[in-house]
């Protein structure tokens, strides 16, 4: 089960906060296909938000094909967002952990690391779509070789 947190001051629409929290849970494997989402009643009792906001969030998740309502039973997760590449034992993740360790060793703080990741993401997005994948794969491989 997932427990929602609503931040009134985040500036993000409340229903989007709920959607994002479900997606996050799906990515991290906290929620798996077949799991039931909490009822609107349970969510609003805990978060003190308008029930329609919860329903709107669930409709959005349904629209994205992540959950489905089953009449009389509740809303169930139909698809996972967790990808093998992001799992705890995946090589990509191990690489990233290594890289972060090196960054820390080089004296970069958390903020610096996040900024660097943001920048790298932006840089990758700016490259031509076709070229992005091989290039990234290309840059990844040597770095992995470096560390092993």
């Amino acid at each position: 089960m997932i427990e929602f947190q609503v931040d009134r001051h985040s500036g993000v629409a409340t229903y989007l906060q709920l959607v994002n929290q479900v997606k996050q849970a799906l990515r991290l494997g906290v929620l798996e296909p077949g799991d039931r989402l909490p009822t609107a009643r349970a969510v609003v009792e805990a978060t003190a938000i308008n029930p329609n906001t919860v329903l709107k969030a669930y409709r959005e998740l349904e629209r994205e094909g992540l959950v489905e309502p089953r009449p009389g039973q509740g809303t169930f997760v139909t698809r996972s967002l967790s990808r093998p590449e992001a799992a705890a034992d995946s090589p990509l993740r191990a690489d990233l952990v290594d890289w972060v360790t090196r960054a820390h060793a080089a004296g970069l703080g958390r903020e610096d690391v996040l900024a660097l990741v943001e920048a790298a993401l932006a840089e990758a997005a700016a490259r031509p779509r076709g070229a992005a994948r091989p290039t990234r794969a290309g840059t990844e491989r040597p770095s992995r070789e470096d560390t092993t």
């Binding site: 609503v6 009134r8 409340t14 009822t39 609107a40 009643r41 349970a42 609003v44 009792e45 978060t47 003190a48 938000i49 308008n50 029930p51 906001t53 919860v54």
Partner: peptide, 24 residues
């Protein structure tokens, strides 16, 4: 809000502080 979710009732709730109602 749980009552609203259960029974779909209409609520009028007053306040001179809006933020406490903005999510509601």
């Amino acid at each position: 809000m749980a009552e609203v979710a259960d029974r779909g009732i209409t609520v009028v709730i007053s306040s001179h502080v809006l933020p406490e109602l903005e999510n509601v």
